[in-house]
Structures are given as C-alpha cells and as structure tokens.
Write a protein that binds this DNA or RNA. Structure first.
Lengths: 207, 207
DNA sequence: TGGCTAATGTACGAAACGGTACATACATTG
DNA sequence: CAATGTATGTACCGTTTCGTACATTAGCCA
C-alpha cells in the first residue's frame, strides 16, 4: 500500500472504526484484528498509538463523551419560560440520544463492566456537572414562580430524562421483540419524543 | 470428586452460575472454563446439557425471563382505584428490577447483540403481552372515569416505567460516576421509588 | 542531499479459549 | 445381579486472538 503518511488521519480513523466495533460487539466481543481490517492501516498502529486494546477503548470512551459535552453546551434554554425550557431540554436530549446510538451502546458496554474503564480516564470525571447546572437554573426559576414542584433536584430530573432516552436506543432490540414496537421507526420516535415532554412537564407541574 | 449424581442439581447449578458470569462479563467476556470452575461439576457438562456456550446463554435467558413472568402475574392491581393501581404497578416494577440486577444486566447484554439470541428462543415470543394487559385494564378504567388521560396506551406506560427502572440498575455505574449519586444505596432507592410513582401519576393525570 | 526520527508494514509467537474424544462410574430396571 | 443407558471426569486438539520483534519507508531538517 503506497500511501502518504498522515498520523492524524490514521489515529482518527482507528478511533472512528473502533467506536463502531466496540458498540456493536462489546468490549470482549470486539476483535483487534477486525478493527484494523476495517481501516486503511494495520493492527500495528493500534499498539503504536493506543498501547493496546484497552487503551483504544479508553480513547474511544473519552472521545465519545467529549462529543456529548460539546452538544450539551449548545443547550441554551435560558431565554425560555421554565415549563417550555424543561420540555425543550427533554426534547433536545431525546434527539441527541437517538441520533448517537453508538455512544449510548458504548455506555451500556461500560456499565456491563461496572465502569471499570472510565474510572481510568481523568478527563471524564467532571463531565456530569454541566448537564445538571442547566437544569438547576431552570428548576430554580420555576420554583420561584411556583410553576414547578420543589421536591426534586436537577439530578432527579436529569436521571428521568436520561433513563427514557437511553432506553430508546439501548433496549430497542428486546423491547421491540417483546412488544412489537420499533422505537427507532420515525413515527414512533416522533410520538415518544412528544410523550417524554408530556411526562416531564406533567410530573414537574403537578403539585 | 466422589459425589452422588444429581442431574437436576448439576443443570441448575450451571444455569445459576452462568447467569452470574454472563451478567458480569457479557456474552463474549464470559469464559466457559470460568463458569465450570465456579460449579461443582466440569466444563464437560455444559456441552452435555446445553450443547455449548450459546446454548447455555439461551437457557440462561429463558430461565431469567420465565422468572420475570411469574412475578408479573402476582401483580394483581384490579382491586385498586386506577390512580392507586398505576402507582402500585410502578412501585412493584421498580422493586422487581432493583432486586434482580442479574436479569437486567442480561437484558443489556442481549441488547448489545441486537437481540440475536433471544430470537432463537421460541418461548420468549409471547412474553410481552401479560405485562401490557394488566396496564391496559387499569388505563381503560381510568379513561372511563376521566381520571387518566386518553392519549397514551399500555405500551407507552410500560415503556416509561421500564425505562426508569432499567436505568437504576443498568446504568448505575456510569451515572454514579458522573453525578456522584449511588442509585442502589437504600435511601436513594427509596427516594427514586417514590419519584417514579410521582412521575407516572403526574403524567397520566395531567390533562 | 544525507541522515535521523516518526510512522508503518509483515510475520510470527504464546496463551487463551471453545470444543471434543475417550474412558468410566453410577443407578435403574428387568 | 447382570445389563444398559445416563451422567460425569480427564486429557487433549485446533483456532482464535492479543501482542510484539524486526524490517522498512517517508518526510523533515541541518
């Protein structure tokens, strides 16, 4: 293979393909050889750039979470009324999850391994805060105006939204099999998106 | 090892240990040798009774789902008012999930493999119906009395409840890491259980 | 331009892993 | 109590899989 060298391309191509393979097959199920074969480089480069299979997985995790964080920062809901802001946050989170199934599956994989890998990545430690603080602000405004209930905090709300959104992607196979409803089909997706908004608003405005 | 024979014990011990190992390590991560070593029998018996690693996993899945079905049938909410019944169903589902983490993790594993295994188990095909029909009944009563909203069906409600409950177990590692809240700690668990009830009731009674 | 380092390719090794051949002991039944 | 099939143990095989030793090339800089 005669091809001009491009360290950055090699590295990022490995990351991209590894993201796919790990999210499709899990950590143990993913094969180093398969990842290499799907790129334009060789297995050797995985060891050169990432040290090994686990190092590659850590890099994949970090890159995926970094992308998420960027998207969360675009989540400016400060100019909306509390109730509208809550619905908007829920809907954007929903879209974001459904549009990034690889990332969600990666999170599932990491959970099966009890978060053993992510603990090793220092940069992931401070990643929860931003998502919570946006919600915190909206909740505070809603509590002040009396529109939103006061007995829940931002983490409670974020958990509920995450749970619903993660489920759409992470459990679509078993749920679809058992209930014959494909959560990723466009019309179902649209319906569930609206339902999530109804749930969060109904919950937080009931008091 | 001098030990009287007991086919049933051998079989069930293999199933029990395999459930643990598969849910801890995933399908590919689980080692046939490790499963065997953790029992009082040998690897040979896995092939004798289950044909191989995949056969064992299928048997584990089937046994796990069967246990779930049994518990769902104890879910008699017919004698409660619709709103109370809904809350009760949500809370029992919650307890059930949190008390059976192995099963939930198994479902995660199966989803990573896109449900490829469960499709092969005929007896799992009809498993969704019972859970939905209990809810269907309650919803119908609530719609008739005007207490519950009419624009959602049993599968919608079941999905919401499942999503919240599954998340408690399946994502506790990453969520705990990112937000410093251990969803399986007794006090948090109790709180989330109540919150789930509030969510479902708030949602379904808002209209 | 020549040399030096970063980047890449090839071929191979050792251990792990799923699976099986073969031998054998137990228990049931006639 | 013999006979037969079920149940179990041991030792081993072939492949897969992660990882690496060694060779080589491309481009940059003195």
């Amino acid at each position: 293979m005669v091809q001009s060298r491009d360290a950055e391309r090699t590295r990022s191509e490995l990351l991209e393909v590894a993201t796919e393979v790990f999210s499709e097959q899990g950590y143990s199920g993913a094969r180093v050889d398969e990842i290499a074969e799907r790129t334009r480089t060789t297995k050797r480069m995985i060891y050169y750039y990432f040290g090994g299979k686990e190092g590659l997985f850590l890099a994949v995790l970090e890159a995926a979470y970094r992308r998420i964080r960027e998207l969360e920062q675009n989540l400016h809901a400060g100019d909306l009324e509390p109730v509208d802001a809550i619905r908007r946050i829920a809907e954007l989170t929903f879209d974001h999850h459904v549009d990034h199934p690889d990332f969600i599956r990666l999170v599932s994989v990491e959970n099966i391994h009890r978060g053993r890998h992510m603990e090793k990545v220092e940069s992931l430690r401070e990643l929860g805060a931003p998502a919570a603080s946006v919600l915190e602000d909206v909740l505070a405004r809603g509590r002040a105006s009396g529109e939103l209930r006061a007995d829940v905090d931002a983490v409670d709300v974020h958990m509920m939204i995450s749970a619903y959104c993660v489920f759409q992607v992470a459990n679509s196979a078993t749920f679809g099999f058992l209930f014959g409803r494909d959560m990723l089909a466009p019309d179902v997706r649209e319906r569930n998106r609206r339902i999530l908004g109804d749930i969060v608003v109904g919950w937080l405005t009931a008091h």
